[in-house]
Nucleic acid binder design. Structure first.
Length: 450
RNA sequence: CGGGGCGUGGCGCAGCCUGGUAGCGCGGCGGUUUUGGGUACCGUAGGUCGUAGGUUCGAAUCCUAUCGCCCCGACCA
């Protein structure tokens, strides 16, 4: 993309309403604009990141064998009356009446809808297990939306639902989700720690929240530092293997890690003192096994081998996709702006022309732009007639992980400068070498370019 | 939902107390400057002061209502 043709309304000054760094930077970098309290328009740069995250989530879900679909944002109240949640949900649910006086709602989640679809279409245990998911906008009429996309009223979320014949099978689905979520976050360049979560009225211990450690996190968390040393890495997981998923579940959930909701001081004190940590965290996902809660309430049964109907065991699992952008920025920024992990950078390489209108620099930038584009590296070429400082500042603000600087001084020696946003280190090399180097940096990450 | 605060050009703010018909910085636009970290200079456009009502000769300023937004606390991907 040539910056002169793009839509990137960056702000020099911070809008007064933004309190936390991710919100400020998203506004300043021209990623979002507020439409009303807790509701945002996604400008091109923000939308690009959102789609990238969405893509990663899709890929990892499908790798785990989960099936994508799409349910509507607006739902009929009838199903929610059937499950009993129409009254339980309270004011967080946005209720709407259509022209015929029918009660509708903007879905805060989709258990009812998916259960309805399931019960009308699946009748035999032979069709199980199944996990269906979608990535769709949700609306929860928060009392107090804040922190930009971190706690919006309208938010983009992946929610998935597993249907299994019994608890044992459903718990495998639970573990499988844990593994796929770990992988999803790691791929985005984030460390998200699974922490035991409150299961609410259903009880049991089968819910985990995934938290990204960040100073501005809303939850207080307590953990054994051993857990932050863990990583899934590039191990090849067979998602159908109960043993493998169970082993990873055990590996990641055995060290103490809890939010203030489930924190147990006595248990925590058993962790060696040097490894006892408390911090703040941002919740970016949650997995849940809830047994037959909805299948009982809504009559979602399948016939078992003996021909008798049995309620299916279900779980639901969510990833806050729009919130993840906030979490990513909270975890990756400095005073100058965002520092995107390479996998989720909206533009992989920035090209800065220090002398716009200079024949040599223009030609060199053009060569870089073509070369990087040909490799699928989605460069952002700042071809505006601006001072160097303004161009650098823009690239830093929007967080391009790599920047190639082209100036008359370097070109005289046949070199351009490749700079890492994260380390700030620069290296001079030829144009061809710069293109090659960028290609190497992003090798294996092509699939997620949008 | 309880407590607090704020609405003045695109953004950040001043003016309000002590009514006299709107100002600053940034940004925009047109030039000059061809520049190595948000450059400098010249010129220029842009605001029924959130909305409605009231007081007054006169309201951004005082009063009332209303809408919106933000912050602090209890709840949530």
């Amino acid at each position: 993309m040539r910056l002169s043709r793009y839509f990137l309304p960056v702000l020099k000054e911070t809008p007064a309403e933004a309190q936390i760094v991710s919100h400020r930077l998203m506004l300043r970098a021209g990623m979002i604009r507020q439409a009303s309290a807790g509701i945002y328009s996604w400008l091109p740069l923000g939308f690009k990141v959102l789609r990238m995250l969405e893509n990663i989530v899709h890929e990892e879900q499908q790798r785990a064998g989960h099936i994508p679909m799409l349910m509507p944002t607006l739902q009929s109240a009838d199903l929610w009356r059937e499950s009993g949640r129409y009254d339980d949900y309270g004011k967080e649910m946005l209720r709407i009446t259509d022209r015929h006086g029918r009660d509708m709602l903007y879905g805060p989640t989709n258990e009812e809808l998916i259960t309805d679809i399931f019960r009308n279409s699946v009748g035999s245990y032979k069709e199980l297990p199944k996990t269906l998911y979608h990535i769709q906008w949700k609306f929860r009429d928060e009392v107090r939306p804040r922190f930009g996309v971190m706690r919006g009223r309208e938010f983009f979320m992946k929610d998935g639902y597993n249907f299994d014949i019994d608890k044992e099978s459903a718990l495998h689905a639970y573990n499988r989700h844990l593994v796929s979520y770990l992988r999803t976050y790691e791929r985005m360049g984030l460390q998200a720690i699974p922490m035991r979560a409150d299961t609410g009225p259903i009880g049991g211990d089968h819910s985990h929240e995934f938290l990204v450690l960040a100073k501005t996190g809303e939850s207080e968390v307590f953990y054994d530092s051993a857990v932050t040393d863990l990583s899934l890495g590039d191990r090849n997981v067979d998602y159908d293997s109960v043993e493998q998923c169970q082993a990873i579940f055990d590996e990641f959930t055995t060290p103490y890690a809890r939010t203030d909701e489930t924190h147990d001081e006595a248990l925590f004190n058993q962790v060696p003192e040097a490894r006892r940590k408390s911090a703040r965290g941002i919740e970016v996902g949650q997995i849940f096994y809830f047994g037959t809660k909805y299948s009982d309430a809504m009559g979602a049964t399948v016939n078992g081998p003996d021909g008798k109907p049995v309620p299916v065991h279900m779980g639901s699992h969510g990833i806050g996709v729009s919130r993840l952008i906030g979490a990513l920025i909270e975890a990756n920024h400095d005073d100058n702006g965002i520092i995107w992990p390479e996998a989720v950078a909206p533009f992989k390489v920035g090209v800065v022309n220090l002398k716009q209108g200079g024949g040599d620099t223009d030609a060199a930038c053009e060569q870089l732009y073509q070369g990087l584009s040909a490799r699928g590296l989605d460069p952002l070429y700042d071809d505006r007639n601006e001072r160097a400082g303004a161009k650098f500042a823009t690239m830093d603000l929007i967080g391009c992980p790599w920047r190639i600087t082209v100036g008359p001084r370097g070109l005289k020696n046949g070199v351009v400068e490749l700079t890492s946003r994260r380390s700030g280190e620069s290296e001079e090399m030829s144009i061809e070498a710069a293109i090659d180097r960028c290609g190497q940096i992003y090798a294996g990450k092509e699939a997620i370019f949008v």
